[in-house]
Amino acid sequence: MMPIDDDEREILNAYEKGKLASIATKSELARFKAVARATGIKDRRVNIRLSSDDLNTIQAKALEQGIPYQTLIASVLHKYVTGRLAEKL
């Protein structure tokens, strides 16, 4: 895991002291919960072939983020199909 910077430490300290409060409305929280529930349901299996270089890079990026590489791949695909992954121009 990467070390946290001063800004992150300040946020963490405020959270641990109970100084932070949610600004989300009840409807937003309900929508977030529904999206999280739907995203968490993994009922299908897919096998794909990747180049060794691509897989090594994906695994390295996942390690940097502290998540399994399969989770990173699923997240990227989910963002793409929901239109939240934009191509750099």
Results as ranks from 00 to 15, higher is better:
60 A>T: 14
69 Y>L: 03
62 A>K: 06
49 R>W: 11
65 Q>V: 01
77 L>P: 03
30 A>C: 01
21 A>M: 09
74 A>F: 03
87 E>Y: 15
26 K>I: 12
48 I>G: 00
43 D>Y: 05
42 K>C: 04
74 A>C: 02
68 P>S: 04
69 Y>A: 13
26 K>Q: 13
39 T>M: 02
84 R>M: 14
49 R>N: 06
1 M>Y: 06
41 I>R: 15
79 K>D: 13
36 A>D: 08
51 S>F: 11
33 K>T: 13
36 A>H: 07
1 M>Q: 02
33 K>A: 14
61 K>H: 12
67 I>P: 01
86 A>W: 14
16 E>N: 09
35 V>T: 06
34 A>L: 04
43 D>W: 05
87 E>I: 15
9 R>W: 01
53 D>H: 08
36 A>F: 08
20 L>F: 03
23 I>S: 14
84 R>N: 15
4 I>W: 11
63 L>Q: 13
22 S>K: 03
86 A>P: 08
34 A>S: 04
71 T>R: 01
24 A>R: 09
54 D>T: 12
19 K>Y: 10
28 E>N: 04
22 S>G: 04
66 G>R: 09
44 R>Q: 14
69 Y>K: 08
8 E>A: 06
4 I>M: 12
7 D>F: 04
70 Q>W: 07
64 E>D: 10
13 N>V: 12
14 A>Y: 13
52 S>D: 14
53 D>I: 08
8 E>R: 05
81 V>Q: 06
79 K>N: 09
88 K>H: 15
59 Q>V: 01
52 S>K: 15
87 E>T: 15
68 P>F: 10
